[in-house]
Design a binder for these strands. Structure first.
Lengths: 150, 150
DNA sequence: CGGAGATGGTTTAATATTGAACTATCTTAA
DNA sequence: TTAAGATAGTTCAATATTAAACCATCTCCG
């Protein structure tokens, strides 16, 4: 068997794994999103609140890094959260370029109640895998995801 | 150790795997998208062309199922592909509710050239994993993704 | 000091995305 | 045959998303 065939087979395996990875992520997201929608939150809005909840106040740039979104997008997501009174913007005194995003009392209450429920829903989604399989999946995904830095 | 602690540990594992799954999918997508953008295509547009290329003409509903998008979205994606002359809509004679989407000669040429290059890029993205690991990742993802039907 | 360049955020234009309301068409059953 | 219900597609409103242009601010020299 020549390298040409070997290369083709390798490519099929890579494509197949890639497609299944994407489908899994999309399927799980799609099944989880309605859960958040009931609380009137989009996935990004939830992600932002969750980051602020677990990491404390962040500037928009750091928030963007955490939820893997562009600067322009963060402006809009924070805009919408601010309109609903869930977060507030505070211009940093030391360096006036930075805007720190803080959870309001209302926002903290919402995410504090929602997060445990959402975590439960995620556990339900992943329940088809055993503990060992979850770890295996996590470690494989981590390597694929981090490939960028290589 | 009581069930409470066991349950919590299980939840942490599930959350951790979930986050890594999402990150991996987003990271790979983000690294792949610029590749398509060079050809002036978005991920959805590429997905639609690729489905038509490998499966033949499809009605919009089937196209939506293939690329996991809503009906309203398909209308727009096909609109934009049609504007660029890559696909054409044909109203079905037998049942006039259906619109069949066909690749044009231009569209077929584009996806025919682009697909192999894109597949190569995907292989590069997945190259951190061995063949066996790719299969393992694929099978775990498949089970998580298909959980919906359960 | 003062300009050059870097950095954080906003705005804008284009496309994506969904759910819901709506139109057109088909099917079914009374 | 015809009215009711199902189905395919479109439209609309809202938000997401990005890249690029842009403004404000800061830092670092010279």
């Amino acid at each position: 068997m020549g390298t040409r065939h070997k290369g083709a087979s390798r490519e099929v395996k890579a494509l197949d794994a890639y497609i299944k990875l994407m489908r899994a992520a999309e399927s799980v997201s799609a099944r989880l999103a309605p859960h958040l929608a009931k609380a009137g939150l989009t996935v990004s809005q939830f992600g932002a609140l969750e980051a602020l909840y677990h990491l404390g106040p962040l500037c928009q740039r750091d928030l963007g890094k955490k939820i893997l979104k562009s600067g322009g997008n963060i402006t809009m997501v924070v805009d919408n959260l601010e309109k609903r009174g869930l977060v507030e913007r505070v211009r940093a005194e030391s360096d006036r370029r930075y805007v720190t995003v803080n959870l309001t009392k209302t926002g903290r209450k919402l995410i504090g109640e929602l997060f445990p429920r959402h975590a439960g829903a995620i556990r339900e989604e992943m329940c088809v895998l055993s503990d060992a399989e979850l770890e295996k999946l996590g470690s494989l995904c981590k390597r694929v995801g981090l490939k960028a830095k290589a």
